[in-house]
Design a protein around this nucleic acid. Sequence first.
RNA 1: GGAGAGAUGGCUGAGUGGUCGAAAGCGCUCCCCUGCUAAGGGAGUAUACCUCAAAAGGGUAUCGAGGGUUCGAAUCCCUCUCUCUCCGCCA
Length: 425
Amino acid sequence: MLDITYIRENTDAVKQGMIHKGEKDTSLVDQALVLDAKWRDGVTRLDRSRSELNQISGQVGAMMKSGRKEEAQTLIQQTQTLKEEIKELDKSVPELRNELDQVLYQIPNVPDPSVPVGSTPDDNVIHSEWGSPRHEDHLKPHWELAEQNHWLDFQRGVKVAGAGFPFYVGEMARLQRSLISFFLDSAVDAGYTELQAPLFVNEDSARGTGQIPDKEDMMYVIPKDGFFAIPTAEVPVTNFHRDEILEIDQLPVFYAAHTPCWRREAGSYGKDVKGLNRLHQFDKVELVKMVHPDQSDEELESLREHAESLLKALKIPFRTLLMCTGDMGFTQTKKYDLEVWSSGQKRWLEVSSCSNFGSFQARRMKLRYRTESGKTEMLHTLNGSGLALPRVMAALLEQYQRPDGRVDVPEVLKSRMGTDIIGSV
RNA sequence: GGAGAGAUGGCUGAGUGGUCGAAAGCGCUCCCCUGCUAAGGGAGUAUACCUCAAAAGGGUAUCGAGGGUUCGAAUCCCUCUCUCUCCGCCA
């Protein structure tokens, strides 16, 4: 959420940002300002009444001590109206604040000035392209390669769990494990601290990163215990420091975590869900940064560069998109998407999304640091995939396939795979 | 799952109805003293919000969370959560 003080002082910029992100109606901002004024008025009145009551209580105490009970009684009688007033305000002020928060939750983060203004994916800017995509006619999609080599078992996945929960078999399982380990090692080398995180989170955490109340339907829920299955490691990892104040010399904080991710993704169909393109459960290595506000612009670039370096090391062709205002999402100030070229499907597949959230997430989860002057201030958070496994594997198989359906192992994975080539003729 | 104990500031730990946002100690910061080291003295050291152009100042709330009793609650009552110990179960 945005800071109401910021909205108060930058009303036009906030409205402009909303419009650029595709909202037609900016009246939420005006609503917020009205509620803010009401709420502050209520707080002031409540504080004043309480102050009066406290003062009287002190006097009563002093009288009781010195035995002036009658005097005390008359004072006590005076408190009745005050107490009623407090009781009312005590109810209405939090209600107003709650109303205000509900409005604030619906106001999107303001895009960074460097983000191209646009409304559709066509307005995204190609930031860079890398590698040599294969364009032979008879390249197979990964699901055909997987079928030939018995690498994926979708049917048994359906039997055991349901659609979108495949088994990875033999070399494919090992390939995934090798990639995960490669990604994590790279992250650690780049200064990230490796975390193994809870795979279920509680309601507070889901709220902290904004999955609820907005995007509840994306998550699997375990109602009996009040858990949410994480849709990304971003949720537990960003919440790691929720409600904390970090010292300035602890910054910046970098974390990397591999987790499965569960997404309900209701309503998808067709080529999107074919093979490994879209699953209900998939593995991902997630990178999270918590940084000083002055650093977040640069940190987004280095985050993107790190994600790109993984694809370069694997020699998988990809492009990086700078997402336009209309395609970047509610919570971000700036976002890059990395898309690998799927040689067998002749299309781009998103494997990473690197985002700067500014203080938007931090404010929601009270993630702060102490400035040199001793004040507390919201941190900036960033995250990015590094990387999402299934689509990387899909692109890898397709890019490295041989005419006989076997697949060469990328150089950087050979020792982990224990072989130069996988599959059988 | 059963039984018991507990939850206070960065930490340890007092406090059972009236200047308690909270003693004391430790830690930390600054200053003084001391020719190293050690020791000593003094001051300061939570968070959030409102008010104020800002700073200063003022006010309010917070002693696990929520509710109640009272003029007044860290202290009394109710509900919940969590932690610890013992037993059971268990990778």
